[in-house]
Amino acid sequence: MRFRYLGNSGLKISEIIYGNWLTHGSQVENDTAHACVRAALDNGITSFDTADVYANGRAEEVLGEALAGERRESLEVFTKVYWPTGPKGPNDTGLSRKHVLESIDGSLRRLRMDYVDLYQAHRYDVETPLEETMQAFADVVRAGKALYIGVSEWPADRIREAHAMARSLGIQLISSQPQYSMLWRVIEPEVIPACEDLGVSQIVWSPMAGGMLTGKYLPGQQPPAGSRAADEKGGQKAMAGWMRDDVLGAVQRLRPIAEGLGCTMGQLAIAWVLANPNVAGAIVGASRPGQVAENVAASGLVLDEATLGAVDAAIGHVVTDDPAKVAVPEARVA
């Protein structure tokens, strides 16, 4: 496992980060979830990402249970706040002072920890003054409940505003957590340049585009049984935008590139996002322990310019890179 600095800070994280968005507390049994976390630790992963909204708090609980007994100082644990949680009342959502301060306490209780290394605003809240949100985050940091702060799916201009305000409050905003993959590059035109200027790193989610870049989906064929694209409970809808024959065919042209490197297509996809110098880590999930070891094998896989060019030649015509598709702040619904 290789490690990278997170933003312009002294915090190092594993470049492969274990995330439990779609698994813990929902899709997999607790025993399997614990085994996946154990596999992550055994394979050198020290950084773990979760959020209070995942399975309405249950994902944090399962992660806390799985990490119990581990040396806390040897881990980097990230969580988030914004989306509705609990009974989803009018103050159970957003980035108000009330919700931020109550949510960090709830997250720490579920995680069985005294602090998190990184506390992230899961979306931008247009209904709360940014000054109020940043003051609440500053109070969280000063109380020792979080060491650093970050954002997730914020556009470039909002990141600049928040970063400036954080500096004025004496705290460090060091990370941005967007979706990023070979196929989804909307952060490249604006978010990444802004973050490079500010000393903010990306910790990216869905580096394999929801499994699309593993190559398991074939043009003209139904999704494999048990795959995300075959899941009528939500995965099918989330994957619908990718399930076009032009995309599926383009992805298959990545297969010989991966074979030439002696890696899987999934490992190639993870290595591709890590090739961007502004990316500090790639978040991967797992529904079984074996997937963890396979993903970790992407750490240290260096792609040269010829390989990066071959990737663009294979799939460049189906890439989404419109900066207008970065998550747009909108009124929240309690």
Score class of each variant (00 low, 15 high):
residue 3 F to M: 15
residue 8 N to S: 13
residue 11 L to I: 05
residue 11 L to E: 00
residue 15 E to Y: 00
residue 17 I to H: 01
residue 20 N to L: 00
residue 21 W to C: 00
residue 21 W to P: 00
residue 23 T to Q: 01
residue 24 H to M: 06
residue 25 G to I: 04
residue 25 G to P: 12
residue 26 S to R: 06
residue 28 V to C: 02
residue 29 E to N: 07
residue 34 H to N: 01
residue 37 V to T: 15
residue 41 L to S: 11
residue 42 D to W: 05
residue 43 N to M: 05
residue 46 T to C: 14
residue 46 T to V: 12
residue 48 F to Q: 13
residue 51 A to Y: 05
residue 54 Y to D: 04
residue 54 Y to T: 01
residue 55 A to E: 00
residue 60 E to Q: 13
residue 63 L to K: 06
residue 65 E to C: 03
residue 69 G to V: 14
residue 75 L to G: 09
residue 76 E to S: 14
residue 80 K to Y: 09
residue 85 T to P: 04
residue 90 P to A: 06
residue 93 T to N: 05
residue 95 L to G: 01
residue 96 S to Q: 05
residue 98 K to P: 08
residue 100 V to R: 07
residue 101 L to G: 09
residue 103 S to Q: 13
residue 105 D to T: 13
residue 109 R to W: 04
residue 113 M to F: 09
residue 114 D to Q: 14
residue 116 V to T: 15
residue 119 Y to Q: 02
residue 124 Y to V: 09
residue 129 P to L: 04
residue 129 P to I: 03
residue 130 L to W: 04
residue 130 L to D: 02
residue 132 E to S: 11
residue 132 E to F: 07
residue 137 F to C: 02
residue 142 R to Y: 02
residue 143 A to G: 10
residue 144 G to M: 03
residue 146 A to E: 00
residue 153 E to F: 02
residue 156 A to W: 03
residue 157 D to H: 13
residue 160 R to I: 14
residue 161 E to I: 04
residue 168 S to Y: 01
residue 170 G to L: 11
residue 170 G to I: 06
residue 170 G to S: 02
residue 176 S to D: 04
residue 181 S to D: 06
residue 186 V to Q: 09
residue 187 I to A: 14
residue 196 E to N: 15
residue 199 G to S: 00
residue 200 V to C: 03
residue 202 Q to I: 04
residue 213 L to G: 11
residue 219 P to I: 15
residue 220 G to T: 10
residue 220 G to D: 02
residue 220 G to I: 06
residue 225 A to M: 14
residue 227 S to C: 08
residue 230 A to I: 10
residue 231 D to K: 03
residue 233 K to V: 04
residue 236 Q to H: 01
residue 238 A to I: 07
residue 240 A to F: 02
residue 243 M to V: 05
residue 250 A to W: 07
residue 260 G to K: 07
residue 260 G to S: 05
residue 266 G to W: 04
residue 268 L to S: 10
residue 269 A to T: 13
residue 274 L to H: 13
residue 277 P to S: 07
residue 278 N to A: 15
residue 286 A to T: 03
residue 288 R to F: 00
residue 290 G to T: 07
residue 294 E to T: 12
residue 296 V to F: 07
residue 300 G to N: 09
residue 304 D to V: 05
residue 304 D to P: 13
residue 309 G to Q: 12
residue 312 D to K: 15
residue 314 A to R: 11
residue 316 G to C: 01
residue 321 D to L: 03
residue 321 D to P: 03
residue 328 V to E: 02
residue 331 A to G: 10
